[in-house]
Design a protein around this nucleic acid. Structure first.
Lengths: 198, 198
DNA sequence: TATTCAATGAACAGCGCCGTTCCATCAAAT
DNA sequence: ATTTGATGGAACGGCGCTGTTCATTGAATA
């Protein structure tokens, strides 16, 4: 790198190694926040707690994330980036309703199991999350439901009932409840049976 | 309910009309607390809020209910006293598993619907409730599950699966989830089908 | 070497809740 | 008429959290 001597008055400042350290600090904050969300849950997570866990001052947290939404967005993006997210597009090849159901629910339940610590807190405290985050969650849930429903050729009353039951089957709480005593596979079987019998 | 005390010097003091007023105050507090639990939920209910709603001082609330458990117990007892509580004993005449299931779930779901405002908050904030209250809730839930299970003549693996599925069917959250799009009757049908297919 | 700037550390004011104290009030009971 | 006791009213100290200011540190940078 070539250097130039400058006069004391006004020189642009291009950070390089410095920028990395800043990002590291930011990352430590996000990691701490994600960890807390997954243990004490969003409702038990405080700025002070995050700062302490990140080995940083409250003020530093505020500077990186001016408001809750900024922090939650960063957390959610980072956490999702290290999950294998269920992907309806990959279920598309299964045209048979029953088969798509099995594959889709299995994919969903695997995701639920892998991320249960975080999801438990998130769904419990959903009402306390920033509006935008809540909407994102609802949208995803709706997408899974509608995608599974789309494999069926129904309308009217039957469609309404199917949508309700599929919505139930795809709910995190349903997975949670069923797997108190069932394996994931058994839960998939149970819900598939239920839906096909509707 | 209210006791008399003796002062060294004389005159026993038996309250009569007075005692009624005390009980009225106590009742106003309980009513206010129940109302708040059913609207903002236990987690949003504060002593200050109860006092304000009851038209009483915080101090008066503390005097009637020294700790949370005393208050919650009184609330729960009073609320339950004005509910038609599901009663497994009345399901006993139905020996046929399918029939007992329908009757039991219908009774349970009716109770859930009638008390949904309160139950929503209670189940959401269950972790914050006093230990004793939480145990009472868990015991009731377990009782319903086991009573429905008892109609089946099963054991081993099948019993485990049945217990899990019946537990799921009897959960408040399951009722809540299903009745987003189904009627109570349809929900009973769905869960009965699910259980009988297990 | 002099400059830049992320991060620190300390303090502030504010909020709402907690549980407790002391004293005054006033109707009911004797 | 006097005593009793439930309630009111006001204040206290404590807690933990919020979001903000200010001056300082110290390492990366030019």
């Amino acid at each position: 790198m070539t250097e130039q001597k400058q006069s004391p008055n006004s020189r642009p400042y291009r950070m390089q190694r410095r920028a990395e350290q800043v990002d590291e600090t930011r990352q430590r904050i996000v990691d701490a926040a994600v960890h807390l969300h997954g243990t004490v849950g969003p409702s038990g997570t405080t700025i002070a707690g995050i700062a302490a866990a990140a080995g940083v001052t409250r003020l530093t947290v505020y500077r990186h994330f001016p408001d809750d939404l900024a922090l939650y967005s960063a957390c959610s993006a980072h956490w999702l980036s290290q999950q294998v997210v269920p992907d309806p597009a990959r279920w598309e090849q299964y045209a048979d309703p029953a088969e798509r159901l099995r594959v889709g629910l299995a994919d969903l339940y695997r995701f639920y199991r892998d991320g249960q610590a975080m999801l438990l807190g998130v769904y419990r405290d959903k009402a306390l999350l920033p509006e935008a985050i809540r909407e994102a969650i609802d949208n995803d849930d709706r997408a899974f439901r509608e995608f599974l429903l789309a494999a069926f050729d129904v309308d009217g009353e039957k469609e309404r009932r199917l949508r309700a039951v599929i919505g139930h089957a795809t709910s995190f709480w349903t997975w949670r409840s069923l797997t108190q005593g069932l394996t994931d596979d058994e839960a998939v079987d149970a819900m598939t049976t239920l839906i096909l019998a509707t």
